[in-house]
């Protein structure tokens, strides 16, 4: 099988200081001491290959760079070192409602978001009903209400529904399933299983062991910005758990 995602010596550096945006005053009087210019590597020396159809689970403690890695694969962050090569389209379930606008109706938002991700108008027409069905009857009833009147649950459901309808062969999922009620969660799982069965490639970030073992065959364990383990999901999980208990 050919690799659809390949990273080589990937690294990205962030400013350590919490106050990231500079005001003009700070720029003019950069007295050195007033502003901490220290940086740290959020990720470094990450080299990996993912083949088509693989289901990869990404695990590690908070702040170890999981989301950062996902964003670089999605192309919304640019690495400072090394390279990422992604040879197929990516459907990012990172910020689900990112493309939605509060002022527009749900119907307009579906067309705009799906269009932004490259779906043609005809293709959206064709899938429109499926998208709304999946999002649930509440959403269907409110199709022509401005999106900002939606509850956050409804917003996420519609977002998930739109993004998973895209044709992109690579799915990046960043803990989005934490929201939504249990019934919808189950529905999402079924949809993800279905997409995997179609031969899509999955990258899943989760802290939930059950989710990880349910979908993923391979595990990647990130520890303070470095790839600590790469192997079958159960082994990687075991190592992660061992580390975790050791730390306590």
């Amino acid at each position: 099988m050919t690799a659809v995602i390949r990273t080589e010596g990937l690294g990205i550096e962030f400013y350590r200081s919490r106050k990231r945006k500079l005001s003009l005053r700070e720029m003019l009087y950069r007295g050195g001491a007033s502003h901490d210019r220290g940086t740290f590597w959020a990720l470094r020396n990450i080299s990996l290959e993912v083949a088509q159809g693989e289901a990869v689970g990404l695990l590690g403690p908070n702040g170890c760079g999981k989301s950062t890695l996902l964003k670089m694969i999605a192309g919304v962050l640019i690495p400072d070192e090394g390279s990422v090569t992604v040879s197929q389209g990516v459907a990012p379930l990172i910020e689900l409602t990112g493309g939605f606008l509060g002022e527009l109706t749900a119907r307009e938002n579906i067309y705009l978001t799906a269009g932004l991700h490259g779906l043609s108008r005809d293709a959206i027409d064709e899938r429109f009903d499926a998208i709304v069905d999946f999002a649930g009857p509440q959403v269907r009833a409110a199709l022509d209400t401005p999106f900002r009147h939606f509850s956050s649950g409804m917003q996420v459901r519609l977002g998930f529904s739109v993004i998973t309808t895209l044709d992109d062969p690579i799915l990046l999922v960043d803990e989005v399933l934490a929201v939504g009620d249990r019934a919808f969660k189950e529905k999402c799982y079924r949809r993800m299983g279905q997409l995997l069965a179609e031969g899509r490639t999955l990258f899943l970030v989760s802290h939930n062991e059950k989710d990880l073992t349910r979908f993923c065959t391979r595990g990647l364990y990130l520890r303070s910005g470095e790839l600590a383990a790469d192997g079958p999901i159960r082994e990687v999980l075991a190592q992660y758990n061992a580390d975790w208990t050791g730390a306590e």
């Binding site: 964003k71 999605a74 919304v76 990012p92 910020e95 409602t97 990112g98 493309g99």
Partner: peptide, 9 residues
Amino acid sequence: AKLVRSTNL
């Protein structure tokens, strides 16, 4: 910002 962060254009 939200859109820029979520789409690779």
